[in-house]
Design a protein around this nucleic acid. Structure first.
Lengths: 329, 329
DNA sequence: TTGTATGCGTTATCAG
DNA sequence: CTGATAACGCATACAA
């Protein structure tokens, strides 16, 4: 790979001048610029961004940590973020945290050591203190789907409790009174919040908690299958099933079918997230919309504004979930 | 962030020695090592990998280019690759090519300028010549799902033609004779190959091509919807529908339902890829399995072996697709 | 407008 | 086994 030095030699100018036309920071005489550009062209020169990064302490790259690279939710999120940054000439470096505190910390440290200008984090396992400390270290970052006291201005969240509330409230309004709930792992903030919303809705209708109608799943499809089967075995009948995400709802739907029951006639099912295959299910899944794309875009804009000083007006920090009624309720 | 220099000062050794304990390249006296480690600990030192990369011309990071970050196919692929590398202490930098030659080239250049030790490419738009040239430049890379003459040893592919053949052959064996085909964009290698397989199967059964039973889609769900509707309008009836991927098959299934037809009684449908939500459809989708996970893992191993000299034995270059029979046929 | 010199944080090549 | 010291490729004050 050609270096800036070779370019300067070929163009008959100093190395500094080449750097100037590359970054077009200070004015360069037109003739000189042309000479340099010709030389770059001829040598097929591409700046070494590692060296640029080391010298300037800026990398034009943004680090992203998500729990998993696969799955419809993260795919959509990553896709949107990458799009937004590519349009701005920035690049993303992605790492997976696998919902594990060590791996999450690891990923963050890795990205920081790669000189990322900013981070976008969807982390679930590291504790609040770590994040607050991270903020104090001066590293700019946004937190997605999690509200941490002390760094509220860096948090972009969905009102998960409200979403959980909406789902159950809808079931109640439809006349259901025996409502089962398949939760995500309760140590995850969003799972806990969604469940809180569920309880709140029940309380509003004067319905007490029934442990036999609760199952703590894993946010995966199998969690939905196991959840439904487990709930049936408890012996307490129910006519509605609220699932804390669409994957589990899909699993539950399969299990309901296998149990020979009809949806929604015998069991109504609702999910959460509105991931893009939620209408592939049969019947099409009623769910709570999680505006992933908007949130991803907002996180990217936060960075563009705060770190790269782009003129961006409306930064929205809290998103409100919406009920999407389809055929499973 | 603490630098290696500060560590050396605190430990009372030279900067070079610190570097040695970090990389434990040449032996260091135990006492010295302990002093240095203590100093690193105290300062919370983390090596700056940008500087490491610049100095060593090695980055321990692998660049990956895929068409999209979202979607079940790429999600699974990325996830698997990242897993494999993380276990080996390597990291991935991901860029999207969006099936566009300029963006693909751009992504590749970006990754190369980030000093990636190797690249894993799932590119569709850049031409063979570019890739051959890239290989000659000395950059190690593997190509996924594409066979390019001259650099066969860097290609890891699925036998797409065989897959296309299997799908249609199965329909024929089931007694279908009027078989419609919804293809991917034919400029994409895999789409073309799958279609070739389809034609081959037809030919084997002595059935000629019928333009009215062909539709060129976009590999997206909507392509399946539009495809089915278009095919019906052609007036030529068919009892089987072969789709070049599962997304289009899902769309087609929806369209078939909306047309008031039963699957598989009136129209049998088969997909391709066996992406993980293909059993969420109703009825569950018969399809051709694309072993994404294995292929992703193989690509990662190729790099570990060839670039990092890890002792890995079995590198498989060609994968054979398999028919997965479910309920849609 | 352009050139010179220095530094960014490491690795690597030499001597000791 | 350890310590100077020169790269690595580029950005950037400072001069000119």
């Amino acid at each position: 790979m050609a270096t800036i030095y070779q370019v300067s030699e070929l163009a008959g100018v100093s190395l500094a001048t080449v750097s100037r036309v590359i970054n077009n920071t200070v004015p360069v005489r037109e003739a000189t610029r042309l000479k340099v550009e010709a030389a770059m062209q001829e040598l097929g020169y591409r700046p070494n961004s590692v060296a640029q990064s080391l010298a300037s302490n800026r990398s034009n790259s943004i680090g992203i940590v998500v729990s998993e690279l696969g799955g419809p939710f993260y795919g959509e999120l990553l896709s949107r973020i990458e799009n937004e940054f590519r349009a701005a000439g920035k690049h993303v470096i992605i790492a997976a945290g696998h919902s594990n505190a060590d791996l999450e910390r690891d990923s963050i440290e890795f990205l920081r050591s790669r000189n990322c200008d900013a981070l976008i984090l969807h982390v679930e396992a590291v504790d609040d203190a770590y994040l607050v400390e991270l903020a104090e270290s001066g590293l700019p970052f946004v937190l997605i789907n999690r509200m941490v006291a002390g760094i509220e201005e860096r948090c972009i969240t969905l009102d998960n409790e409200q979403g959980g509330y909406l789902a159950t409230e809808y079931m109640l309004q439809q006349g259901h009174r025996d409502i089962a709930y398949i939760s995500g792992p309760l140590w995850k903030h969003d799972a806990q919040e969604r469940y809180n919303g569920h309880q709140k809705a029940l309380a509003k209708f004067g319905i007490g908690e029934n442990k036999a109608l609760f199952y703590e799943g894993d946010f995966q499809e199998t969690g939905g299958v196991n959840g439904f089967n487990h709930l049936r075995e408890q012996g307490h009948t129910f006519t509605a099933l609220v699932c804390a995400n669409d994957e589990m709802a899909s699993g539950a739907i399969t299990a309901v079918h296998e149990a020979g029951l009809d949806i929604p006639e015998q069991v109504a099912v609702i999910g959460f997230d509105n991931i893009n295959f939620s209408h592939y299910t049969h019947p099409k899944l009623t769910t709570i919309d999680y505006p992933v794309a908007e949130i991803g875009q907002m996180a990217a804009r936060w960075v563009l504004k705060r770190v790269y000083q782009r003129p961006i007006e409306d930064l929205q920090a809290l998103f409100i979930p919406q009920l999407i009624v389809r055929d499973s309720t």
